[in-house]
Simulated assay, not measured.
Amino acid sequence: MIATLRRNMTRENGVDLLRHALTTALFSSLIAIALAISGRGAWGAQFVYSLSIGMISWVVIDVGRLMMSPDPRKLWPNGFKGVLLVLVGITAGFLGGNAIGDAWTGAPLLEFWTFAPHKFASTLVITAVAGIAICYFYYSRGKSKYLEGEIALAQRDAADARLKLLETQLEPHMLFNTLANLRVLITTDPQRAVAMLDRLNSYLRVTLGGSRALAHPLAAEFDRLGDYLELMSVRMGDRLRYTLDLPDNLRDVLVPPLMLQPLVENSIRHGLEPQVEGGEITVRARREGGQLVIEVSDTGVGIGHAPAPSSAEAGGFGVAQVRERLTTVYGAQSSMTMSALATGGTCATITFPLPT
């Protein structure tokens, strides 16, 4: 039991113990006032009796549940053990509290045994009802807290599963696009096709060999984005230029994988490729208060001049997936906008809260 108590005695549970003690003391004071008003004796004496009974019951029940609970999330003994704990706590409080009260007032030890039957019964009933009411209140709050935790855990698991599903949809999309480009280069420029194949092999080794975590450092996201852009440079040559700007103080910020690559793909497909001269892509991260802002801008043809993607093209799919992943992870605290630049080209901006 001592080992169980040590396991369950977290800081949060310690705060709950203190809160329960203060609540029990307040409730005991109210009972003392009610008994004094009803003519059962002076308020001071009733306060000592009531507080002693309440605090002893609290110690036995509240500490006992931490010692007996097999589940650190529920913190209440299973089955009859919980009922037995309440009965033992109320009995210990009744006997110990009366003994303390008798010692305080100078009355014979456990004087209640000499009370008239109706007075003894009323004293016992008041103690039992008060103890059961407080225990039920604590139990209800604890159960509500446990259920809230289970709901939050289920929601998090569902969000994680959805995030994984979205990622598994994005990775094949990138692979299929690259293989289609390879097919063209094999017949038109075999040497560049071999270089592109080498880049693809390196990219897939890092991507598939890494962990399937739901989040990784922003530096890893930029590194993988750099690999992808190098892969695309083999195909586009001098027509593709890029800049990756990541401040050192943001390198360790955790973000969902493959958050930026679909935006870069979109810039290449709908911004740079339609231009004979190609263009430049800039990916920049910055902090604005408690928010992380990432911009993916290009010097392409711009939103108004880009050809509308067909249902078979994945540019629109990738952008939609980024929006959905932002909503899944960050909810209403995130946003994504796409706007035309005054100098030509397009800027996609995503914003979400920095971890606290």
Results as ranks from 00 to 15, higher is better:
222 F>G: 00
223 D>M: 12
225 L>H: 05
226 G>W: 06
227 D>G: 13
227 D>W: 11
228 Y>F: 10
229 L>H: 08
229 L>C: 01
231 L>D: 11
231 L>N: 00
231 L>Y: 11
231 L>M: 05
233 S>I: 02
234 V>H: 13
234 V>M: 14
234 V>Q: 15
235 R>D: 09
236 M>C: 09
236 M>T: 01
236 M>N: 04
237 G>E: 13
238 D>V: 02
239 R>V: 07
239 R>N: 09
239 R>K: 10
240 L>D: 02
240 L>N: 03
241 R>H: 13
241 R>S: 02
241 R>D: 14
242 Y>I: 14
245 D>Y: 04
246 L>D: 09
247 P>C: 10
248 D>M: 05
249 N>D: 15
250 L>M: 00
251 R>I: 14
251 R>W: 13
252 D>C: 15
252 D>N: 12
252 D>W: 13
252 D>Q: 08
254 L>N: 12
254 L>V: 14
258 L>A: 11
258 L>D: 11
262 P>A: 03
263 L>V: 10
264 V>P: 02
266 N>Y: 08
266 N>W: 10
266 N>S: 06
267 S>W: 11
268 I>Q: 11
269 R>W: 01
270 H>D: 04
270 H>K: 04
270 H>N: 12
271 G>A: 05
271 G>F: 00
271 G>Y: 12
271 G>C: 07
271 G>V: 02
272 L>H: 15
273 E>M: 13
273 E>Y: 07
274 P>R: 04
275 Q>I: 14
275 Q>E: 04
277 E>Q: 15
278 G>R: 10
278 G>C: 08
279 G>R: 14
279 G>A: 06
280 E>Q: 02
282 T>I: 06
283 V>N: 10
284 R>Y: 04
285 A>P: 00
286 R>T: 00
286 R>H: 08
287 R>T: 02
287 R>C: 07
287 R>M: 06
287 R>S: 03
287 R>A: 12
289 G>T: 00
290 G>L: 03
290 G>R: 07
291 Q>L: 12
291 Q>A: 08
292 L>E: 05
293 V>A: 04
293 V>F: 00
294 I>W: 04
294 I>C: 02
294 I>R: 03
294 I>Y: 01
295 E>M: 11
296 V>S: 07
297 S>R: 10
297 S>V: 01
298 D>G: 05
299 T>A: 06
299 T>L: 00
300 G>V: 08
300 G>L: 01
301 V>Y: 12
301 V>D: 04
302 G>E: 06
302 G>T: 10
302 G>V: 12
304 G>H: 01
306 A>S: 14
307 P>H: 13
309 P>T: 13
